[in-house]
């Protein structure tokens, strides 16, 4: 085939990338390797394509995100055979992360991949009434956050299922 016509949408990567398009919109694309799909399918005992995938956006502005403490979150179903989507109607001037994951039958969500944080810009003039400061060119006046946003994504996880997990498995009867 003419090299100019060749194209692939799969790059043998496991990733979900969120890009800010405008104050209300994030563009998300994702890819999962066959390896990952196979592990997940094995675990849930179903072909991967039958596991319903969803996107989930979390507002993680100014928090140490643990996966459970977002200010706000929203699920968005994924159309079959797609590998990208827009998430519309988000809040301006916030920091989001986006998961792709499974909505389990018992209502729980299982995260498969998580994006880096992405900041939406403000949409209206700042109401900042703080002191007006002046500074020279060529002098750093404070450290800024990284380009993509400023949330700390460490989960801060402690021992999982601590009440029932003994290091090998969990006891299935209630623990006194």
């Amino acid at each position: 085939m003419d090299p100019d016509e060749q194209w692939t949408r799969t790059w043998e990567k496991d990733r979900i990338v969120a890009l800010c398009r405008d104050p209300q919109t994030i563009f998300v694309y994702w890819e999962m390797t066959d390896w990952r799909k196979r592990v997940i399918a094995q675990h849930f005992g179903q072909p991967f394509d039958r596991l319903g995938l969803s996107l989930r956006a979390y507002d993680v502005t100014d928090i140490y995100f643990t996966g459970e403490n977002a200010h706000w979150d929203r699920l968005q179903a994924i159309a079959p055979e797609t590998d990208s989507a827009y998430m519309y109607g988000l809040a301006a001037h916030r920091v989001f992360v986006v998961d792709i994951g499974l909505q389990l039958s018992d209502g729980h969500f299982f995260t498969l991949l998580r994006s880096e944080p992405v900041a939406t810009p403000p949409q209206v003039a700042s109401v900042d009434t703080g002191a007006v400061r002046f500074g020279p060119i060529g002098v750093v006046t404070s450290e800024v956050a990284a380009a993509s946003g400023s949330a700390d994504l460490r989960t801060g996880s402690q021992i999982p299922y601590e009440d029932s997990f003994d290091g090998y498995s969990v006891s299935e009867r209630p623990v006194n």
Binding site: V39, I40, H43, T66, G67, E68, D99, G101, L102, L104, D106, H108, F109, F110, T111, R114, L153, R154, T155, S157, P160, Y161, S164, F165, S169, V170
Partner: peptide, 18 residues
């Protein structure tokens, strides 16, 4: 780091860890 939400069950947590 093992990501949450992890499906709410220990056995799913192990998948997330892997």
């Amino acid at each position: 780091d093992v990501m949450k939400p992890d499906g709410g069950e220990f056995i799913h947590w192990t998948l997330a860890m892997n």
